[in-house]
C-alpha cells in the first residue's frame, strides 16, 4: 500500500490538518453542550476482562500494568464521584488488532450523559456524526429487525446449528462452533455490514449474550435484550454505546463470567477492576455512554479507506 520510504509519515499533510481540525471541532461540540473534558490514565492495574479484547501489558516500576483498551472504567469512577457529564478524547490500545480499519493504538472519543438512555444518546451521536460526515440517509433498526431483513432469521431464537448453516451459505468458513455469538458476529461483519449502504445506521437491542457493560431489559416482545447500540456509516462500525449497567453485583458477576470464558478459551487472565465495582457499589448515577472511533470518523469525513493513511505513523512505521 505504501510506497514512500519507511521513515516518512503514513498520512499526508492535508489529513494531519484535517485531524487537528476534527479534534478542535469535537471539543467545540462538547463545550457547546457543557460536557466536561477529562483526561484519565492510559496505564492501569486492571484490564478489560472481555474475552474478545486483548490488552497490552507494560512493566512499570516493577509492576505489571495494562494500557487501557478504553477509558471506560476511569470515566465511570469519575461519574460515581459526582463529575456530571464528561468526555475523554485520547488513545486506547488493543493487542493484535491491525488492518485496514484497525491499529493497535487508536484514538477514542468516549462520553457519558447522566439521566439519558440509549435512545436519547443515539440522538446526540447522530448530531455529532452528521456534523462531520454527511451520510446519505439515517435509520434505526433493532438487531432482530436487521437480521430478519437481511437474512430472514431471528437472531435471539436461532441456535448455533441454524446460524452456522446460514453463515456457510454466504461465507467459506469451515470451523465448528457452539457459540452462537461467533456466528452472529460472522454474519454481521461479512454479510450485513457490506449490505448496509452509504447511510448512518443505528442498530440497537443486542442479544443478551453481547451485553458487555449494558443493562439487560425485556423488549416489546418480552425478549431479554442488551440496551446497547452500534452506529455504522457506510457499513463501517463507528460507535458503540450502552444504557449503562449500574448494578455492582451484576457487574461483578459479569467479570466472573468473562474470566470463566477466558479460562475455557485458554486466554490470558487479568485482574478484574475491583475499584470499578466499589464505585458502582457507592452509586453510579443512571447514565448512557458511548465510545466512538475517531480515526474512523476522520476516514469517513475525508474519503480515506485505510486507517493507516489517517495516522501520522501507522503501526508498520513506528
Amino acid at each position: 500500500m505504501m510506497t514512500t520510504p519507511d521513515w516518512q509519515p503514513s498520512a499526508d499533510m492535508p489529513l494531519l490538518r484535517a485531524r487537528a481540525q476534527l479534534y478542535a471541532q469535537l471539543r467545540t461540540f462538547f463545550a457547546e453542550r457543557r460536557v466536561l473534558e477529562v483526561e484519565v490514565p492510559l496505564l492501569a492495574r486492571a484490564a478489560a476482562t472481555d474475552p474478545h479484547i486483548d490488552s497490552i501489558s507494560a512493566s512499570v516500576c516493577g509492576e505489571l500494568l495494562y494500557l487501557q483498551s478504553s477509558p471506560e472504567f476511569f470515566l465511570k469512577r469519575l461519574l460515581a464521584a459526582g463529575s456530571g457529564d464528561i468526555y475523554s478524547l485520547g488513545k486506547a490500545f488493543r493487542n493484535g488488532e491491525a488492518g485496514r480499519r484497525h491499529n493497535p493504538e487508536f484514538t477514542m472519543l468516549e462520553w457519558y450523559r447522566l439521566g439519558w438512555d440509549d435512545q436519547q444518546l443515539m440522538d446526540e451521536v447522530e448530531a455529532l456524526i452528521v456534523r462531520f460526515c454527511a451520510p446519505s440517509g439515517i435509520s434505526r433498526c433493532s438487531y432482530r429487525d436487521l437480521f430478519e431483513r437481511h437474512l430472514g432469521i431471528d437472531p435471539h431464537k436461532a441456535d448455533a446449528e441454524q446460524l452456522s448453516m446460514l453463515a456457510r451459505q454466504h461465507i467459506d468458513a469451515d470451523w465448528q462452533d457452539n457459540d452462537r455469538d461467533v456466528w452472529l458476529d460472522l454474519l454481521m461483519t461479512h454479510v450485513i455490514e457490506p449490505a448496509m449502504g452509504e447511510g448512518l445506521v443505528f442498530v440497537y437491542d443486542f442479544p443478551e449474550t453481547q451485553a458487555a457493560l449494558a443493562r439487560v431489559q425485556p423488549d416489546e416482545q418480552g425478549q431479554s435484550v442488551a440496551k446497547r447500540f452500534e452506529a455504522y456509516v457506510r457499513g463501517v462500525e463507528l460507535a458503540n454505546g450502552y444504557f449503562e449497567l449500574t448494578d455492582a453485583e451484576e457487574q461483578a458477576s459479569r467479570f466472573c463470567r468473562d474470566i470463566e470464558q477466558r479460562k475455557r478459551l485458554g486466554l490470558p487472565l487479568y485482574r478484574s477492576d475491583e475499584k470499578l465495582v466499589q464505585a458502582l457499589n457507592s452509586g453510579l448515577p443512571d447514565c448512557a455512554g458511548v465510545a466512538l472511533g475517531v480515526d474512523r470518523l476522520l476516514m469517513l469525513s475525508s474519503d480515506c479507506d485505510d486507517i493507516r493513511r489517517s495516522l501520522a505513523f501507522a503501526f508498520e512505521r513506528i
Binding site: D50, H52, I53, G96, E97, A98, G99, R100, R101, H102, I171, D172, A173, D174, W175, D181, V182, L184, D185, L186, M188, T189, H190, Q210, A212, E230, E237, N240, A291, G293
Partner: peptide
Amino acid sequence: EFVKPGKGQAFNRVKLRNLTTGRVWERTFK
C-alpha cells in the same frame, strides 16, 4: 483482511490462490 466487531470475535478474511488449479477464492478464519 482483519475483520472484527469492537465487542466481538476477530476474523481474518483471506484471499488465496490454489497453486494446482489456479482457482482464487476467499476463506474466513477465526
